[in-house]
Simulated assay, not measured.
Amino acid sequence: MLDERLAHWDKQGVTALVFTHPLLPGTVSMSHSAWYQNDFEDEQAISDVLSKYNDVVAFTSHSHSSLKQNNWWGTRRCDGTPQGAIGLPVVNTGAILNEYLPDGDHDEEIVDDKAATGLRVKVYDDRIRVEAWDFKDGHGPANPEGEAKMIKYQDLAKQYRLSTPTVQPPAEPTPETDADSVSAEGSSAGAKAALVIGIVAALGGAFAFIASQFGDQLRGLLPAPIAGLR
Rank of each mutant, 00 (worst) to 15 (best):
L2Y: 04
H8C: 09
W9L: 13
K11V: 05
Q12Y: 10
G13F: 06
T15L: 13
T20S: 07
H21M: 13
G26K: 08
V28I: 12
H32L: 13
S33F: 05
Y36M: 11
Q37T: 01
Q37L: 05
E41I: 07
Q44W: 05
A45G: 01
Y53V: 02
D55Q: 13
V56R: 12
F59M: 04
T60Q: 02
S65R: 08
S66K: 03
N70T: 13
N70L: 14
C78W: 02
T81M: 06
P82G: 05
Q83E: 15
A85R: 04
I86M: 10
V90R: 15
G94D: 06
Y100A: 08
L101S: 05
D103A: 11
H106G: 00
D113E: 14
A116Y: 10
A116E: 07
A116N: 11
T117S: 15
T117F: 07
L119S: 05
G138F: 00
N143K: 12
A148G: 13
M150T: 03
I151E: 04
Q154P: 00
K158W: 00
Q159V: 01
R161F: 01
R161S: 03
S163W: 10
T164C: 13
V167D: 09
Q168F: 02
E172Y: 09
D178L: 15
D180P: 03
A189M: 02
V196Q: 07
G198E: 11
I199A: 03
I199K: 06
V200P: 00
A201T: 02
A202Q: 11
A202D: 11
L203H: 04
A206F: 12
A206Q: 06
S212F: 08
F214L: 10
D216H: 09
D216E: 08
L221F: 14
A224G: 10
P225E: 14
L229T: 08
